[in-house]
Amino acid sequence: MTSLVNQQPHSEAIGYSFSQSTHAPNKQHSFYPYTDNGGSTLGITGADFAILAGDTRSVAGYNINSRYAPKVFKIGGDDETGEGAHILLSVVGFAADGHALKERLDAVVKMYKYQHGKPMSVRACAQRLSTILYQKRFFPYYVHAILAGLDEEGTGALYSYDPVGSYEREQCRAAGSAASLIMPFLDNQVNFKNQYIPGSGEGHALEPKKAGPLPRSTVEQLVRDAFTSAVERHIEVGDGLQMMVITANGIEEIYTPLKQD
C-alpha cells in the first residue's frame, strides 16, 4: 500500500481529488553526437623533413572496428591519392569529425591554389586550420590535430592543435589516447629533457644537453619505439603504423605492422 503512505496533503488548488500528479518532467534521453575512436598520432620535425605517424586501429569501446583506418592524410593533393600534396594532417579522437575536418582543409588548400596560383604555405594553412576549428567553438570537432610540412626555409614544420583551435609550432608532439605515454618519452629522447653533459660542472653549473634537429633515421626509429611501447600498454593502439615523411622531394608513406592483440 505504498500509495497510501505516500499521499501528500491535499492542496488548495482546484483539480483532482488526488494529489499525485499525472504529469512528470519530460524524460530526456539525449542523443550524444560524439564517440571516441581511439588511437594515437605523433609528429617530429628535423632539419629538412617532418614525420607524421599514427597507428591504424579504429575502435568503438572494446570493439576493433578496423585494423586499417588511416589517421594521417595528405592535404591539397591533385587527385584522390593525394599525389602532389605538400602538407600532412593527422587527426585523432572522433573519426567522423576528423574526416570532415580533413575534407574541409583539403578543399581550402586546393581552392587557395586555384585562386592564387601558388601552393599554400604551411604557416598559412596552420592559421586557417585554427580558424576552421574555432568556427565550431560551441560544437567542436572532437579531434586533436597535428599539421606537418616544410616551412619557407625548407625546414620541418609541425603545428599541434586542441579541439577548438589553440595551436603552437613545436619540434615534436604526441596526440590521442596514448599521448600521455609517448610525450614524456619524446621530451627525453628528442628534446633531451633531464639530460646533462657528464662532467660539465657541479650543481647548477651542470650543463644541459642541447637539443638540435635529429637525423631522419634516428627520428624514424624513435617513432617506431614510441609506438611499439604504446602498443604494449594501451589497448586502443595497435595493428599498424602509418608513417608519412615529408621532404623537399615529396611525401613518402611507410607502413609497418604492429601487434594485433
Binding site: P33, Y34, T35, N37, S58, A60, N65, S66, R67, Y68, A69, F94, A95, A96, H99, A100
Partner: peptide, 12 residues
Amino acid sequence: SSADLLGTTYSA
C-alpha cells in the same frame, strides 16, 4: 565499408 548514425566510417 560501413557508416553509422554519427557519420563514423571504416572498412575492413
